[in-house]
Nucleic acid binder design. Structure first.
Length: 271
DNA sequence: CAGGTCTCCTGCTAGC
DNA sequence: TGCTAGCAGGAGACCT
């Protein structure tokens, strides 16, 4: 499931392949991926546009065009792949952007991904971008900010770290890793965390995400090799998805459900 | 406003 | 061996 490091990796990979290419046509095979505007307008506005750059905000990919921002959220299983122009559209490929020399296809098995298209000056003033919290590497992300945001949050920190309106980019995997490194029990109410604990969360979020980005992210479900992105961070996961002994203290790793999410932690290290 | 629950989807798997 | 019920999960909708 793509979280910040995976989206960052996809962004960098795509950038090398699509910048300066023109969108000559767009085919939509599954309408619900397009959240805004209508499919007709989405298609009409994209045709003739050139991809200038690709940026990222939280888990959102932002294709910067001459006049528009195309926002794309991969959710659980969204991915981009390249196909020859006119080649057969295979299962789970829902959108095709026909470029000069290839088709850029959006594939998404569970169809959870979403796209928006905004005029450039409108992208940041509208949902979803205007509801996002701070980037993990934003220098203004500090204990004071979290104290304020968490003041009325009695939900478990595990749940609150997933709240994209506070800090962006953390998903279920890195959430567990951050709390393990910070030695914080995932069930701790967010408003009960000490300044020291909040500082640890900030520091460990940065370090885990940085390390994951450098390794190309985490690949849990295997990708077809032709489809590019293979992360290596899955080999570095300390707690998420693991069973058996905690690598720090040797106690048994426990898996529980927190806010409906599978959560791994060490009851001994994370009191 | 905080927070609980449901919904969207499909592939995989535990269990019979 | 073959079938099916149930699970996984990011984020928004809807309700209390």
């Amino acid at each position: 499931m793509p979280e910040l490091p995976e989206v960052e990796t996809v962004k960098e990979t795509l950038k090398k392949l699509v910048v300066n290419k023109q969108i000559n046509n767009v085919n939509i095979y599954y309408d619900k991926i397009i959240e805004f505007p209508t499919c007709d307008d989405f298609k009409k506005n994209l045709i003739g546009e050139t991809i200038v750059d690709i940026k990222r905000r939280g888990k959102w990919l932002m294709f910067e065009l001459k006049n528009y921002f195309l926002l794309s959220h991969l959710r659980m299983e969204g991915k981009y792949l390249f196909r020859e122009i006119g080649s057969e559209v295979t299962k789970h490929e829902h959108i095709s952007f026909i470029l000069d020399d290839c088709e850029l296809r959006y594939k998404d098995t569970r169809k959870f991904g979403r796209m928006y298209l905004f005029k450039k000056d409108e992208a940041f003033n509208n949902k979803p971008l205007n509801e996002l919290g701070k980037e993990p590497f934003d220098e203004t992300l500090d204990v004071t900010y979290l104290k304020t945001k968490y003041a009325k949050k009695r939900l478990p920190i595990k749940t609150v770290l997933l709240d994209q309106s506070i800090i962006v980019g953390i998903g279920n995997i890195y959430d567990d890793e951050v709390l393990f490194l910070s030695q914080i029990n995932p069930l701790t109410q967010a408003n009960m965390l000490t300044n020291e604990q909040l500082q640890k969360i900030i520091d460990n979020t940065k370090s885990v995400l940085t390390k994951a980005i450098n390794l190309g992210g985490t690949t849990i479900r295997s990708y077809e090799s032709s489809e590019g992105v293979h992360g290596r961070f899955q080999n570095e996961l300390l707690i998420h998805g693991r069973s058996g002994q905690c690598i720090i203290c040797g106690s048994e790793i426990v898996k529980i459900k927190v806010g409906g999410r599978g959560t791994y932690y060490c009851p001994s290290c994370q009191k």
